[in-house]
Simulated scan of single mutants.
Amino acid sequence: MNKQRFTDKFLAAFFILVFLKVIGMLAQLFHESFWSVIGKLVIFLIVAVIIMMVLKNFEDKEKEKESGRKGRSGGDNFYIESSLFDRIRNKYEELARQYIAEQEYKKAAKVYMNLLQNHYRAAKTLEEGGFYNEAAVIYLKKLKNRSEAAQCYEKAKQYRKAIDLYKELEQKEKVGDLYREINDMKNANAYYQMVADDYVNNSQMVKGALVYRKKMELPAEAQKVLLKGWKENKDAFNCLNNYFANISDVKKLGQEIRHLYEKTTSDQKITYLEAMKYEFRKSPDLQKATRDIAYEIIAEKTATRSEIVNELKHFNPDDDMILKDISRYKTGRNRMFRN
């Protein structure tokens, strides 16, 4: 390898000397005749070309020898270089860990950024140290990760910057939350409304109602959405269950249970019966109303769904005779069908 490098250097130096010699001989035109100078120049160039050809031939032979040596030792060189690289990398890793242990998070981040070229770990290290703005910049500029950057700006209470990023990410509810954080309820409710509309349009009525109730503090609107879900059979049971759960006054709840039942269609009554099981257990004041409704539904559906009589036990938990009555009813019904 050293011989080859020497040959390369010699050729470069020789070329420079030839170039300077040619310039020097041309300068003699001011002192000697034109043809005399040209004659000397031609002879010199011929000699120079011959020398360069000899040197080139020598260089080619050296390259062939060097190629053969590389074929035998190339694998060893690779492992040596890899081992050296790993040792250097481990030293940098150790240095970064030492800085973190000393709570020198910015220094550790610089090691990760500049020496290890690991931007993600640099950002995480800054985030761990509470340098949220600096971490956000790395997430955004180096990693193109708007989500992580937005979270860091939020932790840094840079709410405006976080809002802009969450808007780009189309996280509308998060945008609303941050507007509420800075007491901008007009913009907060505008984004919450978008979220509620999206839920309702996707038939996710309970989630839409929760946005109205918890985020916008509009319980009446939440109830409207739940009723809409119940009437349109969009997650009907959960809508009805949540609708009743949002009525805290037991007397009003009892009235609403009866009022809503009177508007219930025949194909909704089985679902209504399921809801009555939950309402029955809420309060002793609701038991009579819910039991009466359950009896009405069971009586109406017995002709087509005989197994519905089993539901009676849910509304008579302390009546030991009810199971015997149900059993007698089933036995009598079976005998009737056999005859």
Rank of each mutant, 00 (worst) to 15 (best):
A12I: 05
F15A: 12
L17Y: 10
F19I: 09
Q28Y: 10
G39K: 14
I50M: 12
I51L: 15
L55K: 07
K61R: 15
K63G: 11
K70W: 14
G71M: 15
G75L: 11
D76S: 11
N77Q: 12
S82W: 11
N90L: 05
L95R: 12
Y99C: 03
K124W: 13
G129L: 05
G130E: 04
Y139T: 01
S147V: 03
S147D: 09
Y153H: 08
A156Q: 02
K174N: 10
M185E: 15
N187K: 08
Y191G: 00
Y192S: 06
D197I: 07
Y199N: 00
N201S: 15
Q204C: 09
R213S: 15
E217P: 02
A220Y: 14
A222P: 00
K234P: 07
A236G: 04
L240I: 04
F244P: 06
A245C: 03
D249I: 00
D249P: 01
D249N: 10
S266V: 03
D267M: 05
I270Y: 09
I270K: 09
T271E: 03
T271M: 07
K277I: 07
S283A: 11
P284G: 06
P284F: 12
L286I: 09
I293W: 02
I297T: 08
E300M: 12
T302C: 09
H314K: 11
D320K: 12
L323N: 06
K324T: 15
D325R: 08
R328L: 14
